[in-house]
Simulated scan of single mutants.
Amino acid sequence: MERSPARPAVVFDIGGVLTTSEGGVPELSRMIGVEPERFAVPYWDHRPPYDEGSAPGEYWALVAADLGLEWSAEEIERIDLFDARRWSEPAPGRVELLTTLHDAGVTTALLSNAPSSMARVVKESAWSARFDRRIFSCDLGLIKPDPKIYRAVEEALDRPGPELVFFDDRPPNVRAALELGWQAHLFTTQEACQDVLFALGLGQQAGA
Rank of each mutant, 00 (worst) to 15 (best):
E27K: 05
E22K: 02
G33H: 12
V11K: 01
G24I: 09
T20G: 09
L28V: 08
E22T: 10
V17H: 08
R38W: 00
V17E: 12
D13R: 02
D13F: 03
F39I: 10
V34I: 15
E22L: 05
T20S: 03
E37C: 00
E35Y: 02
F39W: 10
I14W: 01
V17A: 07
V34E: 15
D13N: 10
G15Q: 14
R38I: 04
G24Y: 08
V34H: 12
V34Q: 11
V17I: 09
E35D: 15
M31P: 03
L28M: 11
A40T: 15
G15N: 13
S29H: 06
P36T: 13
G16R: 11
F12C: 00
F12R: 02
S29T: 12
F39R: 07
V17N: 06
T19D: 08
G16K: 10
S29Q: 05
F12L: 02
E27D: 14
S21V: 12
G24N: 13
A40N: 08
V10Y: 02
E22F: 00
R38P: 00
I32E: 15
G15Y: 04
G23D: 08
L28P: 07
T20K: 03
G23W: 04
P26E: 10
I14V: 15
L18S: 05
T19F: 04
F39E: 10
A40Y: 09
L28D: 02
D13Q: 06
I14A: 01
R30F: 00
G33N: 13
R30A: 15
A40D: 13
